[in-house]
Design a protein around this nucleic acid. Sequence first.
DNA 1: AAGATTTATATCACTGGCTTATACATGTAT
DNA 2: ATACATGTATAAGCCAGTGATATAAATCTT
Lengths: 150, 150
Amino acid sequence: MQPVIESQPESAFVAFGLARLYDALRRLAPRMGLSLTAHSTLKRLDQLGPQRLSELHAAESVTQPAMTQLVTRLEKDGFAVRGGDPADRRAVLVSITEAGSALVEQRRVAYAEALDTVLASLSAPDRAAIIAALPAMERLVDAVAAHTTT
Amino acid sequence: MQPVIESQPESAFVAFGLARLYDALRRLAPRMGLSLTAHSTLKRLDQLGPQRLSELHAAESVTQPAMTQLVTRLEKDGFAVRGGDPADRRAVLVSITEAGSALVEQRRVAYAEALDTVLASLSAPDRAAIIAALPAMERLVDAVAAHTTT
DNA sequence: AAGATTTATATCACTGGCTTATACATGTAT
DNA sequence: ATACATGTATAAGCCAGTGATATAAATCTT
């Protein structure tokens, strides 16, 4: 029952729109039995290659024990493996497995298909507007990453 | 280690960009001690007024017991209240409280501020592109809602 | 109008995924 | 060599979800 925002006229409007977009995308995202963090971690491993457990925990904004446990679960499910770091014997290098990569790919396809259906129901100009904004949104994503890292 | 998408050239690209945007927005969203579902449910109650427990469970895509428990927690924390439906004495009408509305507003402001900081770091053309795409994204959100309801 | 069925919510037992606090092993510096 | 810092693991506990089931009210059937 709240009126629409008034403070920072322009960016608050953007925030409102993006918040709604976020909720919508959340509903659309295929779960496939894995948590948000699990998906995000697998995607990271898939894109960037083996990472230290401590890198992962910082990147995913969860505590270190949480990441230890997540990696244990991923390992149990066959989506990731622990390996030692020859350079530092304290460290653990986590790598994605074939099955893990396959899962990431599978989810991405499912997500793309779901979005495809939705996009198909939009008008051509709307699709064009969204596509035109993608590079800017890409930089928005980078800015968010930089902001949360800081 | 996956190559970039190849299948549906255009919409898959959009999907990829939106997926990244989604992850970024997820990191940026202020938690304030409530779960994603709790926030989403409160927002719904705030915007649409009192709802049945069963409406909420369907709308939020959680099981009915989960919504019963969530409402119990929200009630315990003073953010929502249960009320009977005079028309159907089996039903429970859940309403948001003053404190609940205040929390929703507070979070929205915090989210807007966080996004504001991030948006400020973008170039003016990038901001403009994102703003230009907002109406289209709004309709995308509606389309997602229609799609997931179906 | 009585009984059967459906609908709305609640309760129970369980699991997953997170937290903090702490332990332990390896690396680094003095 | 001793002390401190770093990387990971373990332990105990909480929150938030699940499926199975119970209970009460509404609806249908005859």
